[in-house]
Each structure stands twice: as structure tokens, then as C-alpha cells.
Simulated assay, not measured.
Amino acid sequence: MRGSRTGQPIMVLFDLLGRRWALGILWNLSVEPLTFRDLQSRCESVSPTVLNTRLKELRTAGLVEKTDAGYDLTEDGKTLFRHLEPLGDWAMGWAPTL
């Protein structure tokens, strides 16, 4: 996994989450497991190549898994989302000030 040259876990995480569509995928999977097509539909402008690449990266990181129902968050993915969710709430209040 790319990331900080120093190997700091937070920098590796920020690198992963900063990639196109990584957060969008996590956000959409936080609601329910989704098939590749469903994820592509919800992430409107994502190309199949980028979506496939992000899913592989998120699976390698242990945040997403492939199940019979489609792609889903792992326990680590769910824990991460619980930490990210308050940022979404904060952003809703912040957006009108822009």
C-alpha cells in the first residue's frame, strides 16, 4: 500500500482515502452491500476501471470484502466509517458558509 515514506499509518490511511472515489465507495457501502453495477450507479461518474481499482485497494486494505450479496464493509471498514460519519455531519453545517 502506498503512503507515507515514514510508514505512519495515518498517512497511509489518508493516502488511501484521498484517492478518487475511495470515500464515495465507503459511504455507499455503509448503507448496505452493493453489487459492482449498483456501486457504479450510485457513484455516477466513476469509470469501471477506477471503481475496480478502488475496490481492489480497499479489499487489500481490509476495509471492503466481496460477499454473496456484493461488496460490503468489513468490521474494520465499519469501524472506520463510524469515525468518518461525524465529518459528514460537520460538513453539512459548514457547506452553507462557503
Rank of each mutant, 00 (worst) to 15 (best):
M1H: 12
G3Y: 00
G3P: 00
G3S: 09
S4V: 10
S4W: 06
S4I: 03
R5H: 15
G7E: 07
Q8H: 14
Q8N: 10
P9R: 12
P9C: 05
P9G: 04
I10F: 12
I10T: 13
M11D: 12
L13F: 02
F14L: 15
F14D: 01
F14M: 09
F14V: 07
L17W: 03
G18Y: 01
G18N: 01
R19S: 04
R20M: 07
R20V: 09
R20Q: 13
W21S: 07
W21T: 02
A22D: 07
A22C: 02
L23Q: 08
G24S: 05
G24I: 08
I25W: 02
I25Y: 06
I25V: 15
L26P: 06
L26S: 03
L26H: 00
L26V: 05
N28R: 14
L29H: 04
L29M: 03
S30G: 09
V31M: 07
E32V: 10
E32I: 04
P33N: 10
P33F: 09
L34D: 00
T35F: 05
T35G: 11
F36K: 04
D38G: 14
Q40K: 15
Q40Y: 01
S41I: 11
R42L: 11
C43K: 00
E44M: 13
E44D: 14
S45R: 15
S45A: 15
V46D: 01
S47F: 03
P48C: 03
T49N: 10
T49I: 14
V50F: 01
V50C: 00
V50P: 09
L51M: 08
L51R: 00
L51V: 02
N52W: 11
N52G: 13
N52H: 12
N52T: 15
T53Y: 09
T53F: 06
R54S: 05
R54A: 08
L55Y: 09
K56A: 12
K56Y: 09
E57R: 08
E57L: 13
L58H: 08
T60H: 10
A61L: 05
G62R: 10
L63T: 08
L63P: 03
E65W: 05
K66W: 09
K66C: 10
K66V: 15
T67R: 12
D68Q: 13
D68I: 02
D68P: 02
D68F: 10
A69I: 04
G70M: 10
G70D: 08
L73P: 05
L73K: 00
E75K: 09
G77V: 00
K78M: 11
T79G: 08
T79W: 09
L80K: 03
R82V: 05
R82I: 03
H83M: 03
H83R: 11
L84M: 12
L84E: 00
L84Y: 01
E85T: 03
E85H: 12
P86L: 03
P86C: 07
P86N: 06
L87C: 04
G88F: 15
G88H: 00
D89L: 13
D89E: 14
D89C: 05
W90M: 10
A91T: 01
A91P: 06
A91D: 01
M92L: 15
M92W: 14
G93I: 01
W94S: 07
W94Y: 15
A95C: 08
A95Y: 14
A95D: 07
P96S: 07
T97V: 04
T97A: 11
